[in-house]
Structures are given as structure tokens and as C-alpha cells.
Amino acid sequence: MKGRVGPRIAVIAAILTMVVGAAGFFVTLMLNAFVFDEFDAYGEVPVPGSGRLHLPAGEVTISFHTAVTGGTGGGFPVPALQLAISPSAGGPDPVVTETMGSTTSVNNDVRVRIWVAQIPADGTYDIETGGNVRGYIDPRLAFGRDTSSGWLPWALGGLFVAGLAGLAPALVWSSRAGRRPQPLRGPVSLDEPSWPGPLPPPVASYQPTDQGVRLEQLKTLAALRDSGALTAAEFEAEKRRILDG
């Protein structure tokens, strides 16, 4: 029984690792998409159109945000868009880099990250947008921030793969441990305290005396005489010999 404890622990540990990795991976994806990714934290500007937003210094995400009448199907087509950002009070312009992200869809609401802007200073910025957005419902550009962890889903996915890789050898180990012959118990000694039940009483031993031996011999002679094997004279001679020692 003890030989099977190790394999069972290995199998359980591998399964738990897989469960934690898979569950954590999907939970992290959901949190990154709907909690940590505040895609419209600083406001939105219609496409085409213009607007004025207060943007903090640092990195600002810019996403195309619209509504659809059906599902996104095999992919969401992003139209050709134009964007211009300039500070209202003058100063250096933000640096905008195209960074296409994955599509996030909730019911009929769809968004996909298009750009990341490096804002040089905290302040108010004038924004001009344009593009061929015919067929899209209420299209706009959303400005926000993303505090999600990019490495955590990969780490949890690696944890799932590690658990999956460890499950196979654990199952092999467990199957071999189940077929391993168990050692037989050694011979039971009556002197051991583990013997079940009370111990039998010891057998008494005695040494026969000379008188007892003579009596047995005389009984044998009498039986031979009665059976006719000995004559009366032979019986008397043998009895005298036994009695004389």
C-alpha cells in the first residue's frame, strides 16, 4: 500500500497543476480584456469627426469601437482610418505607433486596438479622425489605458503544459506500482506477541521411572501368555528376570 502513495500523489499533483493552469489562463484573459483594459478611460471621438480630450503623459491606447448587427464570424474587418493628434496649447506632438490587437466582442459591441500613442505631456489634445466607415454602426476611436499583464497568461499556459507533461509519467508509474508483487509475510512464531488469540499451554514432559518400565514389561508378558505366544514356564522365567532387574 505504501508503494502506491507516491504514484497517487504524482498523479494528483499533475492534475491539479493542469486545472490551475487552465483555469488561471482563461480567468486572466477575461480580466485582461474586461477589467484591466480600460479602452475608453479618456473618452471617445466619432469617426469621421473631431474632438478634444484630456490625455495624461505616457502611453495611451487607441481602439476602433463600433457596434455590429451579428457576430464577428471568422474575423472583424477594420476599415482604413486616419488620425491626427495635436496639443491644444502647443508643444511636441505625440508619437503614434500602429499596434494591431485582438478583437474583443461583447454582445453587439466590438472593439479592436489600432494604435498606441506616447503622450509627451499631460494636457488637452485636439483629435481629428477620418476613414471609410460606411456600414459600421456608431464608429468611433476610444482612448484609454491598458494595465493588463501580458506575461501572466503565458506563465499559466506553461503551467498547464507542465502538468500535462507530468501526467503521463505519473500514470505509468502508478500502473507499474499497482502490478508490483507484494512481499509475503514471514513465518508466524507462536512466541510473537502479534499471534492472534491466547497462546496454547506448554506440553508437560516427564521421565519414566524404572518401576514404571517394569510394569509395562510385565503387562506385555501377560498379554503374550494369554495369547499363547508364551508358555507358563517361559512366562515365569521372563517375569523373574524382569523383577530381578
Rank of each mutant, 00 (worst) to 15 (best):
K219I: 10
P79E: 05
L159C: 14
V11M: 07
A14I: 00
A204K: 14
P139A: 07
L184K: 07
F34H: 13
V213D: 15
V161I: 11
A142K: 10
M1Q: 10
P196T: 01
G144L: 02
L167Y: 03
P181A: 07
A232C: 01
K239P: 10
N108L: 09
L156W: 08
V11R: 00
D109T: 12
E192I: 12
V213M: 15
D191R: 08
I12A: 06
R241Q: 09
T220S: 14
E238A: 11
L190N: 11
Q217D: 14
V45G: 07
P7E: 03
D40S: 13
P77I: 01
E59D: 10
M18L: 06
R52T: 13
S88A: 15
S50F: 13
I15Q: 03
E238K: 15
L83D: 09
A67R: 05
G43L: 08
T209S: 11
P201K: 11
F64P: 01
I127H: 05
I119F: 01
G70M: 05
I119N: 01
G101E: 13
S105K: 08
A232Y: 05
Q207S: 10
L29G: 14
E234K: 12
G90W: 00
G131E: 10
F160A: 15
R113E: 09
P46N: 08
D138F: 04
I9A: 07
A57I: 00
G158P: 12
E234F: 00
R225L: 11
V5T: 02
P87D: 00
A89P: 02
G73H: 06
N132P: 04
V45W: 04
R241D: 09
V45Y: 05
Y136F: 06
R180S: 05
K219G: 15
G91D: 00
G43W: 03
F160M: 15
I242W: 08
V172Q: 07
Q217G: 09
D244A: 15
R241I: 02
L16F: 00
V68Y: 02
E98T: 12
I12H: 01
K2W: 06
T231Q: 11
N32G: 04
Q207C: 04
G21F: 13
R52N: 14
A33L: 00
G163N: 06
T231I: 01
V188P: 03
L81C: 05
N108P: 11
T129L: 02
G130N: 03
R111W: 12
R140P: 00
F235D: 14
A89E: 05
